Computed example of a mutant assay.
Amino acid sequence: MQIADDLKKLRNVGPAARKDFAVLRIETVSQLAECNPDELYSRLQSETGVAHDPCVWDVFAAAIHQAKTGEALNWWAFTPVRKARQQNGTF
């Protein structure tokens, strides 16, 4: 299965993230590199009808960053960005 082979190579993409990407029809790293974490997070909530933990955005941001740049940062490196946006109302 391509999704298991391609996306599984990314540092922060475990079974839960792969399930989310399947819901979002993201199957490859190259597809992911074209994505925006805000858009994916919003779409995931719309598609599932469930409010997801904001940390899911952090995982999406980290995975997209790695897909675009090759740099594998831990998902929590993106948490301060999200929290700052939450405080100023842009998240």
Rank of each mutant, 00 (worst) to 15 (best):
T79Y: 12
N36C: 14
D6P: 06
K8W: 05
A77H: 01
L44R: 09
E39Y: 08
V56L: 01
V23H: 12
A22I: 09
I64V: 09
A16T: 00
A67S: 07
V56W: 07
V29Y: 02
K9L: 08
D5F: 04
A61E: 00
V81C: 05
W75L: 04
N36I: 01
K83E: 15
E39W: 01
A4W: 09
S42K: 10
G49N: 14
Q66W: 02
I26S: 15
P15N: 00
N88D: 15
D20Y: 13
L24K: 13
Q45H: 08
E27P: 08
Q66R: 03
P15C: 02
A51T: 15
A67E: 00
A33E: 04
Y41E: 06
V23I: 14
R25D: 15
G89A: 00
V13P: 08
A33V: 10
Q2S: 12
Y41L: 00
E34D: 14
N74Q: 03
V29N: 03
P54V: 04
A72I: 05
L7N: 07
L44N: 04
R82V: 01
Q2R: 11
Q86D: 11
F60D: 01
P54H: 05
R25H: 15
V56C: 07
V13L: 07
L40I: 08
D6N: 01
L73E: 01
H52R: 05
L24C: 14
R25N: 15
R85F: 11
E71M: 00
T28E: 05
